[in-house]
Amino acid sequence: MSPEPANCPICGAAAERLRAAPRGYRYTCPSCGSFHISARALGCRPGIPASAREDIRRLRAYGHLPYVDLTRDGVSISPGRN
């Protein structure tokens, strides 16, 4: 499967995305880097906190592939899987 052009849901920059199992996408953004995001979190784009960009960068600096998801408490950004 080839990447498709899309705007980054975190910062709005031109990015690429690939469909990722089970339900979501892997984005590659020139500003934020690579991260996974669930379809549920994409549907809640206005609910993504302004600090998400920095949280993603911090996790990437420690070698993680961040995972953005929607939980009962709101949007969460976790280390995800390497």
Rank of each mutant, 00 (worst) to 15 (best):
A61W: 00
R26C: 06
G12Q: 06
S34H: 02
R17S: 06
S34Y: 00
C44M: 14
S51L: 09
C32I: 07
S38W: 01
R53Y: 01
R19M: 08
S34Q: 14
E54Y: 05
I37G: 01
E54A: 14
A50T: 11
A21L: 09
Y62V: 06
A61C: 06
L42T: 05
A13F: 10
S34P: 05
I48P: 01
I37D: 00
A21R: 13
R58I: 13
D55V: 06
P49K: 06
H36S: 09
A50M: 07
R26L: 12
P49I: 09
G43M: 12
T28P: 00
Y27W: 08
C44N: 13
Y62H: 15
S51R: 10
A14H: 15
P30D: 08
A15W: 02
C11I: 11
R45V: 10
I48C: 03
A14Q: 15
R19N: 14
C44D: 13
R19W: 03
R57G: 10
R45G: 03
R26S: 05
G33F: 02
E54T: 14
E54Q: 15
R60I: 05
C11K: 04
Y25N: 05
R60C: 10
R23H: 15
L18P: 05
I48A: 01
Y25T: 02
D55H: 10
G47M: 15
R26K: 15
E16G: 04
I48Q: 02
G12A: 12
S38Y: 02
I56Y: 00
S38Q: 05
R53E: 13
F35E: 01
A15K: 03
F35K: 00
E16W: 12
C44F: 08
R53F: 03
Y27D: 02
E16F: 09
A41Y: 01
A13I: 02
C44H: 12
R57H: 11
A15M: 07
P46L: 12
G12P: 02
A14C: 07
A52R: 03
G43T: 08
R40S: 14
G12Y: 04
G47N: 14
A13V: 08
Y62E: 14
C11F: 05
P22M: 05
C32M: 06
R17Q: 11
R58Q: 14
T28R: 12
H36E: 06
R58Y: 07
R45D: 09
A20Q: 12
G43W: 08
A52H: 07
R53I: 04
C11T: 10
L59W: 05
R45N: 09
I37C: 03
I56D: 00
R26P: 00
R57I: 11
L59D: 04
A13D: 15
R58A: 14
S31P: 01
C29S: 05
I37R: 03
L59Y: 04
C44Y: 07
P46D: 13
A14I: 11
P49R: 07
I48M: 04
P49D: 07
L18Q: 14
P46Q: 11
C32N: 05
P30L: 09
A21M: 08
L59R: 02
A50N: 09
G47Y: 12
A39P: 00
A52V: 06
S38G: 08
G12V: 11
F35H: 01
R17W: 03
A50P: 09
H36G: 03
Y27S: 02
